[in-house]
Simulated scan of single mutants.
Amino acid sequence: MATLFGIDYQTWWFLLIGAVFTGYIILDGFDLGAGALHLFFNKETSRRIVLNAIGPVWDGNEVWIVIGGGALFAGFPVVYASLLSAFYVPFILFLLGIIFRAISIEFRSKEPMLWWKRMWDICYTCSSSLIAFLLGLILGNVIQGINIGPDHVFRGSFMEFLNPYAIMMGITTLALLMMHGAIYLVMKTEDRIYTKLTIMVKNTTIFFVIMILLTSFYTLLYLPHMATVIRRFPELFVIPVMMVLAIANITRQITKRKYLFAFISSSVTISLLMVLVAIELYPNMLLSKISPANHLTVYNSSSSEKTLGIMLLMAAIGVPMVVGYTTFVFMTFKGKVKLDEMSY
């Protein structure tokens, strides 16, 4: 088995895909959270300001989901095929949400009519909220497992995805991204809208804390396999402890109005949540409720080692370029939002 620094190629790709999807949730997550909060702003100027807060970065942030999907297809084609065929309806709704969010942002200011702007405002909020909810819904079902047969074909229906845990995970993800987005917006605004956002940050943080507690209790009580690895290796308990401290630090920094540190803590929270899921799933990528023999793992669903090795080299070149571009964009458009003739 080919290795790099003592780690096999399959595990490297598992880590790479996890890192890319984590980057997507952190970056596009605050865009989605800002969109979910959009209708809470009543004045036209306020809506334009919060829209332009994400204006320069939202489309670049979507690149990460494209990279993640491409990496999953290239590294683990069997997982890609089984996952997308099983979650066909959720992924179609996800793509529709992506499309309508984009055209809502671009079309809103093309006409001066009030009804036109209101229509796209509603579309923008609904599509952003739908995307955030579906991300959690899909993650919740991946954690529980789905009905995959021995031929890696899904043997269930769409209604099975709408189970209590997946719905709870969807609402938790929406709450997390709303908090994440509110913190980002408060860093980009000033004056009266800044004051309103300080209140929204507190409310969304309370919403998230309540949901993460409920979801965590449910996971520990009804999904014992999600704590197996940590029970086996007690030193890994430091990860959930760090996550709790990160969440606590969000509230601490909000109280002190140090929103940059709150945003960093929010990003760390997202990262640690993804790390916890990855640790408990590995080496599995897609669990089967029908039989453990049907689980899709990093070993029985990957491309050939030669393919993984070549693509790992390409990823080592391409991913830093995307990180560099993303950093450049954020540095270029840092600071408070100012409306001008080029604004949305």
Rank of each mutant, 00 (worst) to 15 (best):
A53G: 04
E62Y: 14
D28N: 10
R47M: 00
V57C: 10
G55D: 05
V20E: 10
D59N: 08
T22E: 03
D59Y: 03
F30A: 07
V20R: 06
W64V: 01
V63C: 11
V50P: 01
G29E: 02
F14D: 00
R47H: 05
I17V: 11
V63L: 12
L16P: 06
G18V: 00
N52Q: 14
F30Y: 14
T22A: 12
I26F: 07
V20C: 06
F41R: 07
G55M: 05
L32D: 09
A36D: 06
W58F: 00
I25T: 15
I54A: 01
N52R: 09
I49V: 10
A53L: 04
E44M: 11
A36L: 09
Y24P: 05
S46L: 10
L37H: 09
F14W: 10
L51I: 12
L39K: 14
G55P: 06
G60T: 09
S46T: 10
N52C: 08
T22D: 08
L27P: 06
G35R: 01
L51R: 12
R48H: 14
W64Q: 02
N52V: 08
L16R: 03
W58L: 01
I25E: 11
I17M: 01
V20W: 09
W58R: 05
I25D: 07
F30N: 08
V63I: 13
N52T: 08
W64H: 02
G18A: 00
I17T: 04
G29K: 01
N52I: 02
G35D: 10
L51K: 11
V50E: 03
V57W: 08
I49L: 12
E62H: 15
V63S: 14
S46G: 15
W58Q: 01
A19S: 13
Y24W: 12
T22P: 10
N61C: 05
V20S: 01
V63N: 15
A34D: 09
I54L: 02
W58P: 09
W58D: 04
L16Y: 07
G23S: 11
G33K: 01
F14G: 02
G18Q: 00
N52M: 10
N42D: 14
E62T: 11
N61S: 09
F14P: 06
E62L: 15
